[in-house]
Design a protein around this nucleic acid. Sequence first.
DNA 1: ACCTGAACACCGTTCAAGT
DNA 2: ACCTGAACACCGTTCAAGT
Lengths: 245, 245
Amino acid sequence: MPQARSRSRPSKSMLGLDAVLAATIALVDELGCEAVSLRRVAQALQTGPASLYVYVRDRQELMALVLDHAVADVVVPDDGAGDWRTRLELLVGRIVTALAGHNDIASIGLRDALPGPHGLRLTEEMARLLRTGGLDDDACSWAIDLLGQYIYSTALENAGAGTDPPTPETFTARLDATFRTLPAGRYPTLRALAPSLTGGNRDARAAWKLRVIIDGLLAQPPHTPLSRETHVTPAPVTGRRGPLS
Amino acid sequence: MPQARSRSRPSKSMLGLDAVLAATIALVDELGCEAVSLRRVAQALQTGPASLYVYVRDRQELMALVLDHAVADVVVPDDGAGDWRTRLELLVGRIVTALAGHNDIASIGLRDALPGPHGLRLTEEMARLLRTGGLDDDACSWAIDLLGQYIYSTALENAGAGTDPPTPETFTARLDATFRTLPAGRYPTLRALAPSLTGGNRDARAAWKLRVIIDGLLAQPPHTPLSRETHVTPAPVTGRRGPLS
DNA sequence: ACCTGAACACCGTTCAAGT
DNA sequence: ACCTGAACACCGTTCAAGT
């Protein structure tokens, strides 16, 4: 019995899922989602790619776990934060900020990823707040859908905001150049809009869009109230994206 | 001179960009974007992967071209179609339908892709209609942003609708299962919402969300009118996504 | 149970060479 | 200009073998 203490025998190993996730997030921050390969993660952990399959079914599951991990620390606004709308805006803003702080990690959510425990926790709170606002079942569900689109798209749009320098930003620069050099004959409106299309304050833009969505939600007439009890056949139907994962 | 007619000498080749795009779209329809490799496209064209680089800088450019191609046939509603809002809803609906008809092609737009000529044509018309609706420059720009998010997300959500059978849909099924088996203690609202979260009519859901956005746009007070002339420094700023590409 | 080297069947992209 | 075989440096995933 060579071991005096409880640590049985770390010949090299016992990476643990947490270490795998931490290494993956670090690589996402550094290289972006697309460039993160299982081989690179394994290399960062000083092991071979096959070792990761102990903790994860495949690359997709790893990325879904990492996405969920990225919102783990988001705290739900408490009762004192204001009315349901204020709290919803605060919550959504926090989620966007958390995701935008990890490079293009939000792109995982834009594709298919089943919701993880933390995403579910936050989605539950969004749904609860929306119900407090008086929305019926369908409106709540569709609103969650819409807010999910908003969250991931905005987080991706704002990705790399915190870095210094704010990343080369070749993409936005190329987009801006595209608009500014548009033939004014065929695209008069876009040419005129060019400065505001790519410019302006990111947070103001994000807040404005969220306000649009919530104002729009409140403008909808309450659904015909046959919604709940008469739902005999929910008619399962296609749809690739889910709420926060 | 072996050729009697103008066709100079098709020893095998002269694929042409159109043929490359057609082969790529066919593969996207069949396999989905992720599974479409340059090697498979080349194989479909009976050539090697290196041949494609005559027409395309890299895989990303090919996918951007294919995305633009997918909206090439969308026709802009004419003056007789109704007021600006009716026409905008019609236009957006047509774009979503065109994209949703090509599997998960919309996922290209959710990531970074510079707008192509057809996307620009449609974006120009959206911007024009929004201005007709009285929105100022910033509101127009941000609205285009929001509508782009809506278009791609909804098209992806509705992907594979036309197929018969409507595709195995393992993802929606798994999502549905996730919600229905949620512990009701921790997630009471999501459990109650489970039927409407994944169910319901796709088109009704999409139309409702678009209505929410436009109602929300109209609910915004006109911006402080220092918007145009005083734009000295547009403050070029990060942002990964652009309008329709 | 957890880890691993080696192998399998793929990738995107480049390049020198051919027409 | 357009095409191509071959090579380079990668992928995700599996599997038999080790502890």
